[in-house]
Design a binder for these strands. Sequence first.
DNA 1: GCTACCTCGGCAATCGGTTGGCAAACACGC
DNA 2: GCGTGTTTGCCAACCGATTGCCGAGGTAGC
Lengths: 341, 341
Amino acid sequence: MEQSDAATRPRNGDRKAPPTIYDIARLTGVSPSTVSRALNKPGRLNAQTERRIRDAASELGYRINPMARALPTGKTGTLGLLVSDITNPVYFDLVRGAERVAFETGMTIVLADSQESPELERATAERLQTSVDGLLLVGSRLEDQQIQELYSVKPLVVVNRLVEGIPAVIPDVRPGITTALEQLREAGHRRIAYLAGPEASWLNGQRWQTAFATAVEWDMSIVEIKSNAPTREGGAEAFGRVKAADVTAVLAYNDLVALGLLRECRDHGVDVPGRLSIVGFDDIFGADLPTPALSTIRMPLTSLGEKGIRRLLTEIEGGRSEDESALPTEFVGRESIAKAA
Amino acid sequence: MEQSDAATRPRNGDRKAPPTIYDIARLTGVSPSTVSRALNKPGRLNAQTERRIRDAASELGYRINPMARALPTGKTGTLGLLVSDITNPVYFDLVRGAERVAFETGMTIVLADSQESPELERATAERLQTSVDGLLLVGSRLEDQQIQELYSVKPLVVVNRLVEGIPAVIPDVRPGITTALEQLREAGHRRIAYLAGPEASWLNGQRWQTAFATAVEWDMSIVEIKSNAPTREGGAEAFGRVKAADVTAVLAYNDLVALGLLRECRDHGVDVPGRLSIVGFDDIFGADLPTPALSTIRMPLTSLGEKGIRRLLTEIEGGRSEDESALPTEFVGRESIAKAA
DNA sequence: GCTACCTCGGCAATCGGTTGGCAAACACGC
DNA sequence: GCGTGTTTGCCAACCGATTGCCGAGGTAGC
């Protein structure tokens, strides 16, 4: 596996230091401050001088040193994105959306995850705060007060959560849930279960409360079933409790849990959707793969990511953006729903 | 959606500047340089003085300013991780592994993707290089020379690729492919196809060449079928060509392509594995979800991520780490393989 | 020809750390 | 009492930008 003569590789000492504005200044015979202005105060200088400096800069392959700029300005050009679990496919599109907006505005995103641990989340958030201009907290498991403390240090926006006094971007779970329960009701389901997510999750609360209120309104019975983790394993592990609950349909906290339950049903010979209908949340990658394909309530993930970053940017600029309306969810009907047995 | 009285939110000006070593110096009556040494040259100072300073620091809630440190030292404490497509589940575990090692060593990871575009990859890499200590290039689509140029600027490690003179971490595709073809052969398959990935992908070349050599050695016929993109859509779109090729088994460039093909087969009534056996690569999230569950060749993703970062760290320290042996792949038998028709 | 104003570019301070060199203070041996 | 050596902490320069202020020179108005 030796790919090359080690002696031919650059050592750190070999690499030439990148050019600075001082190099450009020397080359063009002006002062460094003039170079700085030429490069980021267009119009401030004589057009011809500016041209000359810009040319010299690109000839030298000059790239601004973000650290050096950050020191006097206090702006790092970096945003922190903290999610509860990187390996949860639900964050794909959200991250993508966030990245797109960040890239367009010339910001860099630092992605980190807290592995569903509040302690780790706090530690990571604090560490990130020293090197970013603002933080996007997605599905935070922290307590309100901790988030407020973080907010008192640096700009911050929460996604999928509401905290007193903190700018937020959230989905409106109502449309998706309403349609889903409507479908279940029309298919004759009267006893349904909600397979719960983490208690510290605000979104879990929203989903449960909305499902609960809707079910009650429509005279369906509904029970909440605990699950240990918002993962496929968590869903599989809840199978026994679901079965014992004697319901004809399950609304799961998220697709991961729904997929875990679905698989377990198949492995135990419980016919889905014949004997049990299952609906998930999020419409993650893979939700359409199993047979039956999973019906789910799609979250506006890309938009949540995009709006989150935009919101954060105006927050950083000191603007006080209006809290916009929540982004609507949408029911995606697939094969995991059928007439109640 | 108004969550709070806007007037109660901190404005940027409201936030108090974080404490600096100057604050600590003033508080303890020593000079800033002494504070600096107390905090990161243990033993250089009188033990008692050091204690006093450390106590004051933690009392003030001091956190070092990474930018300020980066300036004189040239070390940013940040590593860049550049993947070809963030939304490809294959990178989950790799990113996880990389993050774990980075976190343990106190480094921060900046994750970016190039959306399968070489131009974007180069631009992003160059941008990242100004603010990180080193770069991990995963599945790069750049040309060798471009990578070498990047390497001449900052430390860099490539994953899933070999480039002359560049430290690399790669999988050994042989074990997985050998076992997979062995199984196919024993099941009576004699005509197989390789559904190709991006031409610019080194890994695609490895997979094809190894499959080719092995098939030839064992007297199986093998053909290469192009696919337009290494995605589910790409796999679906290749269905016609696969069907026309008159083979009994397909080895796909990755699971995404395999899943796309699998779905398309189902939609067109082609029985898998009855009439066509399918094997993927990577064992991504979701590979086990469809019916039939996808057989695949698992990549040591977590290890690739971990080793990649470790390798990068020694590279940054100026060490010249030995090129270690490639990490073995492993065949994962599921339901998408059966006896040849 | 004089004042008033504007344009253009440089000086120097600043951001928050790090670090080489030095000097003060102290201990020790003789 | 003096030379030598060691410990300890400070001074000041530096990293690479940004920016307030100022002065030189040009232009215009009267």
